[in-house]
Design a binder for these strands. Structure first.
Lengths: 177, 177
DNA sequence: CATGGCATGTAACCTGTTACATGATTCC
DNA sequence: GGAATCATGTAACAGGTTACATGCCATG
């Protein structure tokens, strides 16, 4: 799974500009994928050269022009190849978990503040995910709905565990004083 | 958070070889971090040159020799700097979620098989995490215990959601025929 | 004497990020 | 006129993976 595969997927339904794609990635995809402009634009150029997509300049009134990309038959074929290829394992890297893991080497108060920050961020993410779900649930495919639900439930689970971890640490703290 | 930070953290408690570190990463760290030998060994060389760690060749009987690394005072200082630096956001990339998201473009049966595979892999992960937890729970710090519990609970949540997703898809399937 | 685990390393490559650079247009 | 949003792009760099290469030693 590379950004190329995801771009092809996004173009399967409708034509989009690089800017549009970035916004899509930041909303619905945010739970399980993301990419920067520094990835998107060079990848689009490369894909156009390879004939997977075509570019069209679109004049807009009240806004700068944009370049809208559409998938070609070759692109669809490539996308199908991706969709049937072996699934890669999830990859998860968490700085917060690393800090927690090595928590014994710093003041417990600092670890607690990291947990609190984690809880806060997770709550913010949940708000966004839930509003996205409400906004889109009537206009998306059933598998897309499942994706959004997985994101929500997973974050709720994380929130619960962080909360319980925080409680445990707070109970431990007085002993150390 | 780079592999250097994680290596420093692992060396805070005891000296280790690159091979040892890889095994540590594959067991207790597997839920929230990993690195290949191709990262570990070059990073260790670099860190030794910078004076963050020292190397010692250890003869073993019944086994090939190994190079055991220890953290220096400078290394401890660097680790502390990391532990107090701003936390990076979690990063999560899931090929399986992407396939699910674009599931409408392939046969529902294939999507279902991907979900089933996801469930199977999650179950396997859970077995490993739980046995790790039982094996280490009496010999680890309280924050490390929380980390392991978070891993377990999170995977259980994923398992639940995948199961519900699968059910939903199976209900949908007959309609499409 | 082959297999598998222990142990280390490197070179070629891929993928992606960050920071920078540019410019249109709207709204206040 | 300044900020915000829309819109595209690039160059330098970071960070990592994969595949390959090597060799020790024990066990069956």
């Amino acid at each position: 799974m590379t950004s190329q595969d995801v771009i092809l997927g996004m173009l399967m339904k409708k034509s989009l500009s690089g800017y549009d794609m970035k916004h899509l990635l930041e909303s619905v995809f945010s739970y399980f994928y993301n990419a920067s402009y520094g990835t998107i634009y060079p990848t689009l150029s490369k894909m156009e050269k390879e004939g997977l997509i075509t570019k069209e300049s679109v004049q807009q009134d009240g806004r700068p022009n944009k370049k809208v990309y559409s998938i070609t038959e070759e692109g669809r074929e490539r996308f199908r190849t991706y969709m049937y290829s072996p699934i890669q394992l999830n990859e998860f890297k968490s700085d917060a978990m690393i800090r927690l893991y090595f928590g014994e080497f710093i003041e417990p108060e600092v670890v607690i503040s990291y947990l609190e920050l984690g809880i806060q961020r997770t709550e913010e993410t949940l708000v966004v995910l839930k509003s996205d779900y409400e906004k889109h649930k009537h206009s998306i495919s059933s598998t897309q709905e499942i994706c959004l639900l997985i994101g929500i439930e997973n974050n709720e689970s994380v929130l619960g565990t962080l909360g319980r971890g925080l409680e445990r640490l707070r109970k431990l703290l007085p002993e150390k004083r």
